[in-house]
Design a binder for these strands. Structure first.
Lengths: 212, 212
DNA sequence: GTCTATAAACGGATAGAC
DNA sequence: GTCTATCCGTTTATAGAC
């Protein structure tokens, strides 16, 4: 008989600290920072609130580490696509380059919902100290997108690029409120977002081959 | 000598109840529901927390009335544009129709920030009871937009229309996090949003006259 | 590493004086 | 209509036993 193991589940032993971090992130994503009490996080792990302080100095420390991992994952996803597109062709099709980044952003967003959703939907619920610490890291991620858009839309002014980046972020990030990737179709969804952004709402009527 | 009065400020005497409502809405918009204590709202009005209970039965009552006014204002703005476009021409240009609605939505959003921003950015911070009460009203507003998009994009499937509405909402509503209308330029901003949604990101290269 | 117990502060809400 | 005073629950965080 063969032992059935899920290939998707990492079998690395989850340390106490990591277990707490995941439980906290999950509740923060669900309820927001203030609404999530340490008692609730502890209860999810069948522990008592006081025990958490052996692993983390404070609730602020918890959210700070969750936020850092979240933006770290997003940055990682971006640079992975960046390196891959440099490797394949020196001057790839611009729409395809955008599509790859949109897909990667949506993928990392939804696959690590607990760690990333706070950034795009509940950042203001985090305490000011945590927000301030994260701003430089978030700025770096946003700057990468701004640079990407500048490259693939060379005729737009810097002001327009800035607005377009925020519009694209608004479209992509609002999806965490309603898109459920467990039903599948994240790739198709990424295509719709990309086509809408690139060709406009009437993209179904304006065939890509005609425009490109 | 003439008495200078600001034409923009309603000189209607603000009743105690209305003063409290505005102060509460302002703080809810700034800090979210949970982070805003009744003691803080009262302090803003140089009152004591207990006094608020003469005007409102509970904190839930306060947020409920704020949310109702917010969605009411948005609904009002939509129907105003709807009636106006019916009056002017029987089959107005579709992009222009969309532009008018986008402009109205952004206008009402930013001009009544305290009452509307909770809907588009902090709805999840409201208590479940208030959220449930508001869902039908919000659904009605969203249905109006869905119907509008269905009319001006007749070739898109219902599924695509649904995604496009959410994408448009994401783009418009995320603006409350970063767009500051007091610096002016809301009309120009509405044009960028509309053009991006309609013609795509390269709208500056694809001139409207060429596409229309 | 986890527990119990508790400190210290803050929240919404009520009662009754003025 | 607004105040003071207070009740009562909840929260983060700490101290010390095991």
């Amino acid at each position: 008989m063969t032992v059935i193991t899920s290939p998707e589940v990492e079998r690395t032993p989850v340390t106490g600290r990591e277990r707490i971090l995941v439980a906290a992130a999950t509740r923060f994503a669900e309820l927001g920072y203030t609404e999530t009490s340490l008692r609730l996080i502890a209860a999810d792990l069948e522990m008592k609130a006081g025990s958490l302080y052996y692993h983390f100095a404070s609730k602020d420390d918890l959210i700070l580490e969750v936020l850092h991992r979240g933006i770290g994952l997003m940055m990682e996803a971006f640079t992975t696509v960046e390196l891959a597109s440099e490797a394949t062709s020196d001057e790839a099709d611009e729409r395809e380059r955008l599509a790859a980044h949109v897909s990667a952003h949506l993928r990392v967003l939804h696959d690590n919902f607990a760690f990333t959703s706070l950034h795009v939907a509940r950042f203001r619920t985090a305490p000011p100290s945590a927000r301030e610490a994260l701003v430089p890291v978030r700025d770096a991620y946003e700057a990468k997108w701004t640079q990407l858009l500048r490259t693939i839309l060379p005729r737009q002014s810097d002001e327009e690029i800035g607005v377009l980046r925020l519009v694209l972020f608004g479209a992509m990030n609002s999806s965490i409120e309603w898109f459920h990737p467990e039903r599948g179709g994240l790739d198709a969804f990424a295509e719709i977002i990309t086509d809408q952004f690139w060709y406009g709402a009437a993209f179904a009527e304006v065939s890509p081959s005609r425009v490109g």
